[in-house]
Amino acid sequence: MDGNYVATSDITIAADADRVWTVLTDPAAVKEFMFGADVETDWSQGSSITWRGEWEGKEYADRGEILEVEPGRRLVMTHFSPLGGQEDKPENYHTLTWTLEDEGGGTKLTLSQDNNASPEEAEHSKGMWDQLVASVKEIAERG
């Protein structure tokens, strides 16, 4: 990739960090906020993670690796989607970093994605992640 632009989305959720963490790691919730994808992983550092789904009538299997796990605080993973049309090689993977911070009885959830090739690509990713973190908020707040 030509650049390393970062897309960042954040939102404040009226739920504690443990509740938000549960949403981030529960397969049923992940399916809901990850655009219908089924997730396969054991959420352990070094483990693989796969998201399988269908996008615009086309089946896909995105993949990555869990890099860091701090329950209730931080989750870092790589992510590659063959739908992007790029070759499956390390320089085409993004790193997704989920950070949870206490914010006045609620939780500030921040999701960042690195390795975007241009400011426009980062802005496109941010738009998608804005929708995703809003879905996490909705799921977490409904209890």
Rank of each mutant, 00 (worst) to 15 (best):
M1H: 13
M1A: 09
D2W: 03
G3S: 11
A7L: 02
S9I: 00
S9L: 03
D10K: 08
I11V: 12
I13A: 03
I13K: 00
A14V: 02
A15T: 00
A15Q: 01
D16M: 07
R19Y: 09
R19M: 13
R19G: 02
R19Q: 14
V20F: 10
V20G: 05
V20T: 03
W21N: 00
V23C: 06
V23W: 06
V23L: 09
T25M: 13
D26N: 10
P27G: 09
A28E: 15
A28Q: 14
A28M: 07
A28Y: 10
A29T: 05
A29N: 10
A29P: 07
K31W: 13
K31I: 04
E32K: 14
E32S: 15
F33G: 00
F33T: 00
M34T: 05
F35C: 06
D38P: 02
V39F: 11
V39C: 13
V39A: 14
V39N: 11
D42T: 08
W43D: 01
S44Q: 15
Q45R: 13
Q45I: 12
G46F: 09
S47R: 02
S48H: 09
T50W: 08
T50L: 05
T50I: 11
W51A: 05
W51T: 04
R52P: 01
E54M: 11
E54V: 14
E54D: 14
E56M: 15
G57L: 09
K58G: 01
Y60S: 00
A61Q: 09
A61G: 04
R63I: 04
I66S: 03
I66N: 12
E68W: 06
V69W: 12
P71E: 08
G72F: 07
R73P: 02
R74T: 07
L75Q: 12
L75K: 12
V76G: 15
M77L: 15
M77W: 11
H79M: 14
P82K: 10
P82Q: 13
L83Y: 09
G84L: 11
G85P: 00
D88K: 05
D88G: 12
K89L: 15
E91H: 10
E91L: 11
H94D: 08
T95K: 12
L96R: 00
T97E: 10
W98F: 15
T99C: 06
L100N: 04
L100K: 01
E101V: 05
D102L: 07
D102I: 03
G104N: 11
G104P: 03
G105K: 02
G106A: 11
G106Y: 07
T107N: 03
K108V: 00
L109I: 01
L111E: 09
S112M: 10
Q113W: 10
D114S: 14
D114C: 11
N115M: 06
N115S: 14
N115L: 13
N115A: 14
A117D: 11
P119I: 07
E120M: 13
E120F: 09
A122Q: 01
H124K: 06
G127N: 03
M128I: 14
W129P: 01
Q131N: 04
Q131W: 10
Q131Y: 08
Q131H: 11
L132R: 05
A134M: 02
A134G: 12
S135K: 15
V136S: 04
V136E: 02
E138W: 12
E141F: 11
E141I: 01
R142D: 04
R142L: 02
G143N: 09
G143Y: 14
